[in-house]
Simulated assay, not measured.
Amino acid sequence: MTLTYPEQLEVIQKHQASAPVQTVALADDLGLKVWHVPNWPDDLSGKIVKSADQGGPSGYAIYVNKGHHVNRRRFTTAHEIAHFILHRQFIGDGLVDDGLYRSRLSNSMEAQANKLAADILMPRNLLNQHIANGVTSVARLAEIFQVSESAMSIRVGAPN
């Protein structure tokens, strides 16, 4: 299963009809299998690997630290989806992201993955709808979108 970049964006948009975006369902529709791994060190957030055995139809699997808060797991899943979409040619045996979302990729590639993860989890159109309906509290928006208050603060340009 190989979707083109425009097809991948269509799949993402389909999952952005309401908040919170369901990251595991999105990964499934992109052909990725997500595994929540218990007993990982706290500084290991997730990784994406090419795996014929454990990957989905795309041949890639995402592993996420089950011990992390649900909001962290969601961001990690979105971040690894972003690596799949943007940097698949660099995945090879796997990209491991630690607690600071650092892998062997360049800082610019990590920044790209973080930006796309934020775009996936906090789509501007949904965010603007909630704000237009009077939801302006960063804490409340973070709750609705199931992201950290820090991530939401960055997204809406509010001071932390």
Rank of each mutant, 00 (worst) to 15 (best):
F75V: 02
G31H: 12
S106F: 03
S106W: 13
S137C: 05
T23E: 08
A151G: 07
G67R: 11
I91Q: 07
L126T: 05
W35K: 12
L116F: 12
R73A: 07
S45I: 00
L86D: 04
N107R: 12
V96I: 05
Y60T: 04
K50T: 00
S153A: 11
I131L: 06
R102L: 01
D43Y: 15
G46E: 10
A61T: 12
F90C: 02
D53E: 09
S148D: 05
F84A: 02
D98L: 14
D93S: 08
D97M: 01
G56V: 02
E110T: 00
R74T: 00
K115W: 13
Q8L: 01
K14F: 01
E7F: 05
T76P: 06
L141Y: 04
P57N: 13
D97N: 04
K115M: 10
D28N: 11
Q129F: 02
E143L: 12
Q146E: 04
A61M: 09
V70Y: 14
V147L: 10
Q146S: 08
Q13K: 15
A52K: 13
S137K: 14
H68E: 06
L116N: 15
L86N: 06
A17Y: 13
R73E: 14
F75H: 09
Q112D: 04
E80F: 08
S106H: 10
R102H: 00
S58E: 15
H79L: 05
L9A: 03
E10P: 02
D42G: 00
F90T: 10
L105I: 00
